[in-house]
C-alpha cells in the first residue's frame, strides 16, 4: 500500500456483464477483483444488482453491510461509510448494494459521481452487472473502460452476450462521447470438455466465431466454484483448483500479460480433443 501512495491510482472501470442470468457474473466479478487485489492492485468491486444483492455473500461480508451503494447515491451516507474492507486482502474493498430498493434508485449522475470518487482511490473498479439489458445493466456498463463478457458455451448465453456486445459498442459513455468502443473480452465459464466432446456443448471456437472478440479465459465447470461461493470465499482465495487457476490466468491476460491459453486446458483428459477441436 505504501508504494501505491507514490503514484495516482489507475482508476480503471471494468464491467463484468453477460445479458443472461446464472452464467457466473458475480462469481467472476468476485474472483477477478480478488485476483487483482492479490497482485497488489487497489481494487473495489461494486454490486449493481440492486434488489438482488449477492456479491456481499460471495465475498463473505454480508453481515458487515451497514450502508450501501444506493445510500451513497442518494446522499444518505458517505462513500467511506459504505465501503467494506475485505478481511483477507487489505487491497480489496466491496461496495454492496441494497436488497430493499430496486434499479430505479440508480441514477446516471449518481453512478458517475460515485465512480469518479472511487477512481481517486482505486486502481481497478469492478462493476458486477445485473442480468438483462435494462437500466441496471446499462448503468453498470455506461462508464466502463473495459468489459468482461461472461458466457457459457450454450446458444442462448452466446446470443445474449452478443446482444450485450452490441450495447457495449453503442450505449456507453465512450461510444457516445468519443465514438470509441469499450474494449470487450469474453470469459467462457462452466466449460465442460467432456460435454463438448459429446456434442452437448458449444466448442470454444464456435463461441469465439460468433462473438468475434478476444478470449480472456476459459473457466472449467468445477465443484470448487460452488463450494467457494457457499462459504463466501472468492474462488482465487480458496484452495487451488482448476477454476482458480483459470481466473488467475484470465486476470493476468486482463493486465496485458501473455499467458498461454492451453494452460487452462492442460489438465483436461482430452489432450487429443484439442487437436480435433482446432479448425483445419
Amino acid at each position: 500500500m505504501t508504494q501505491l501512495k507514490d503514484k495516482d491510482p489507475l482508476g480503471k472501470v471494468i464491467v463484468i456483464t453477460s445479458g443472461k442470468g446464472g452464467v457466473g457474473k458475480t462469481t467472476s466479478a468476485a474472483a477477478i477483483a480478488a485476483a487483482l487485489a492479490k497482485r497488489g492492485h487497489k481494487t473495489v468491486v461494486i454490486d449493481f444488482d440492486v434488489g438482488l444483492r449477492n456479491l456481499d455473500m460471495i465475498m463473505g461480508c454480508e453481515r458487515r453491510v451497514v450502508f450501501d451503494f444506493i445510500n451513497v447515491i442518494q446522499g444518505e451516507a458517505r462513500l467511506k461509510q459504505a465501503l467494506i474492507k475485505d478481511k483477507r486482502l487489505d487491497t480489496l474493498s466491496i461496495l454492496p448494494t441494497s436488497q430493499t430498493r430496486d434499479k430505479d434508485a440508480l441514477t446516471q449522475d449518481g453512478v458517475e459521481k460515485v465512480l469518479n470518487e472511487l477512481k481517486e482511490q482505486f486502481d481497478y473498479i469492478i462493476c458486477d452487472s445485473p442480468a438483462g439489458i435494462e437500466r441496471g445493466a446499462q448503468l453498470a456498463m455506461y462508464f466502463a473502460d473495459e468489459a468482461v463478457v461472461v458466457t457459457n458455451p450454450e446458444v442462448s448465453s452466446v446470443r445474449d452476450s452478443d446482444r450485450v456486445l452490441g450495447l457495449l459498442a453503442s450505449k456507453t459513455k465512450r461510444a457516445e462521447d468519443e465514438g470509441t468502443e469499450v474494449k470487450a473480452q469474453v470469459l467462457l465459464t462452466r466449460h465442460d470438455q467432456r460435454r463438448v466432446d459429446a456434442g452437448e456443448m458449444m466448442t470454444i471456437d464456435d463461441v469465439l466465431e460468433i462473438l468475434a472478440v478476444p478470449l480472456l479465459g476459459v473457466v472449467p465447470e468445477s465443484p470448487a466454484v460452488l463450494r467457494a461461493s457457499n462459504v463466501g470465499m472468492p474462488i482465487v482465495l480458496d484452495e487451488p483448483s482448476e477454476a482458480s487457476r483459470a481466473y488467475e490466468a484470465a486476470v493476468a491476460r486482463l493486465l496485458g500479460e501473455e499467458v498461454d491459453m492451453s494452460m487452462s486446458k492442460e489438465k483436461k483428459p482430452g489432450f487429443f480433443s484439442r487437436l480435433f477441436g482446432a479448425p483445419a
Binding site: I133, D162, G166
Partner: peptide, 8 residues
C-alpha cells in the same frame, strides 16, 4: 465496418 450484433 463492424459486426451487426443480436438486437441491432
Amino acid at each position: 465496418r463492424r459486426h451487426v450484433r443480436s438486437g441491432q
